[in-house]
Design a protein around this nucleic acid. Sequence first.
RNA 1: GGUCGGAUGGCCGAGUGGCUAGGCAGAGGUCUGCAAAACCUCGUACAGCGGUUCGAAUCCGCUUCCGACCUCCA
Length: 497
Amino acid sequence: MTEQKLFVYNSLTRTKEEFIPLNPGHVGMYVCGPTVYSDVHLGNCRTFISFDLIYRYLLHLGYKVRYVRNITDAGHLEGDSDEGEDKVSKKAKLEQLEPMEIVQKYTVDFHKVMEIFNTLPPSIEPTATGHIIEQIELVKTILDAGFAYEVGGSVYFDVEKYSETHDYGELNGRKLEDLLTNTRTLGGQDEKRGKLDFALWIKAKPEHLMQWPSPWGMGFPGWHLECSAMSNKYLGHQFDIHGGGMDLMATHHTNEIAQNIACCGKTPAHYWVHTNMLTVNGQKMSKSLGNSFLPYQLFTGEHALLRKGYSPMVMRFFFMQASYRSTVDFSNEAIDAAEIFYKKLAESAKKLAALQQQKVGKIDEETDKTINGFCDDCYASMNDNFNSPKTLEALNNLSKWINSYAANTRNSGEISAETFDRLRKTYNAFFFDVLGLKLEDTEGGDTDELMQLIIKLRNEAKTNKDYATSDKIREGLKQIGFQLNDSKQGTTDWIRI
RNA sequence: GGUCGGAUGGCCGAGUGGCUAGGCAGAGGUCUGCAAAACCUCGUACAGCGGUUCGAAUCCGCUUCCGACCUCCA
């Protein structure tokens, strides 16, 4: 594999930086996963699909990647007042289930959806409840370091103390004074000394469903703590990439960095990568706004915002058409266009699989160079902060040559065997392995045999110049979703439409 | 209100100082019995107003509009 210089936008420095892993050949990546208290909606999916792209490209470059993505199954509160109810507990009460039944239900659902979108499972998927001991240890360390205090069974992180020696607003670019003046005072004043302080450990009320013993009494961990504890455990004090949705940057990740520095003296990750939101009519898709929809609603089209159903790969392709750092606005028009484009590139992938290069004759240097250039573009665009839209452009350019060779309107012997091989390898690598797309309409069973029979009958009619019959067959098939494509050579292909 | 980000042709969406992506839609053409598909050709767009520069979508300032975060969300 050729050495590729990869550049990654780092939220910490607000610049694109060359990606240099701490240990050559290895990458440690931590991504904040879902809180499993309800169905994942499409906006949630986008984030994980974005990181799947990043993960896949790192793998493609030959890195050995340890990809850790957590499951938050405790500690995530309603509201951020540290007095709200645990999301999982609340849902458990509502549905009259054990909290772990809720967790199980939505974890299974999450995995199913991730698989449908063809995302690779992470290397490790740790849960908050599975790491209570590690989190308690972390709290103790932070207390010992003097950056936290205990009040009535709860432990809080002392942001002002921390700020004396560290830049608390490093990630979100805010000054402490601004944060202090602009942070709304939350109702039900609590025991915190400073209003920016956040809970590391929260004392549980007796009726609280999820609680564990600790040196400070029965309680449960704060939301930000689990990520620090688990990234520490599986990736070490310092690792390469920490990712999550942009909405986590200002608070969750800021607090996470503070925790890590307080306990270990080091910023956990070199590169902070934040993916942007999926919007609907310009607004962030979220449950509270009521503009979110679920993956299965997308597939079936059963939602007021959807004109029809769209397949998982069409959705994935749609996401790939925008860079992960931009918002993507959902609209039927935009995804319709993506659907056509996706099918086009997928058709080329199919043609390529069946394509054999003609005998190499006189090599057309210009063409040979052009095709190699497009192969280079695939890498160059992904190297530029995972620019998937540009990668699609390169694939589209390659697909034109593939189509021409497949249709025999150009002779594939005009390029060298090496270039032809590179064309095949590059197209497949980026379409399938890197962008994580797959072919959806591969027919099982007898469909193709049936179609071949019908095509044969139609061709007989054509030979007899019985165009009335041949057109009737073509129209009839179109009505039920099969499209016939005649070639110059007299053969006929079919595709589903 | 504070902080940050965005505004690109009918739609989506790359591009960060000159070489002016790509897709969808649209127009024309090649091919075809006719189509379709495929292939070829065609759009000179960068919110507005100033400024810097030989040259700006790209840099700077102001204005307008939109969004995110600051309050649960990926």
